[in-house]
Amino acid sequence: MPITAKQWLEQIRTLPLPKRVRIMNVCGGHERSITQAGLRAALPRNIELIPGPGCPVCVCPEEDVYQAIQLALNESVILVAFGDMLRVPVNVPKDQPRSLDQAHAAGADIRPIASPMEALQIAQANPDRQVVFFAAGFETTTAPVASLLVEGIPENLSILLSGRLTWPAVAMLLDSGTPGFDALVAPGHVATVMGPEEWQFVVDKHHISTAVAGFTPESLLAATYSVLRQLIDGKQFLDNCYPELVRPGGNPSAKQHLNASMQVVDANWRGIGTIPASGFKLREAFAEADARLRFPEYEEPARRRAGEMPPGCDCAQVVLGRKYPNQCRLYGNACTPRNPVGPCMVSDEGACRIWWSGGMRSVQV
Results as ranks from 00 to 15, higher is better:
Y324I: 06
R129S: 13
M194F: 00
V365H: 05
E284D: 15
F295W: 02
V80D: 01
T336A: 11
S115Q: 11
Q70G: 05
Q263W: 01
R164S: 06
S347V: 06
W356K: 04
A106W: 02
P56Y: 05
F237K: 15
A285S: 14
R20A: 09
P179E: 03
G312K: 09
L161S: 10
A351V: 11
A123M: 14
L73W: 02
N126Q: 11
T216Q: 08
E244H: 11
N74A: 11
A287F: 00
C55K: 03
Y331N: 07
Y331R: 01
R292D: 02
N251V: 07
G177D: 05
L148T: 15
L231H: 04
A143M: 13
Q263S: 13
A5E: 13
A41Q: 15
I275H: 11
D109E: 04
R32H: 10
G180K: 03
L100Q: 05
P343T: 12
H206L: 01
A223F: 05
I12T: 06
E31G: 06
V318C: 03
V202L: 04
L228P: 08
L228E: 08
P144V: 10
H104P: 00
A81W: 00
L220R: 12
N46I: 03
F134P: 03
S253L: 12
W8L: 05
C60M: 08
C27I: 08
K19T: 14
F280G: 01
Q327V: 10
G271N: 15
P179K: 01
N126Y: 01
P296F: 04
E118M: 14
L258M: 14
F237A: 15
E151R: 15
A316M: 08
G163R: 04
R247E: 14
C352K: 08
Q317H: 07
A146M: 10
R283H: 04
T210P: 01
R111N: 07
G350S: 05
V65F: 00
E299F: 03
W167H: 12
A37S: 15
V264Q: 11
L17E: 04
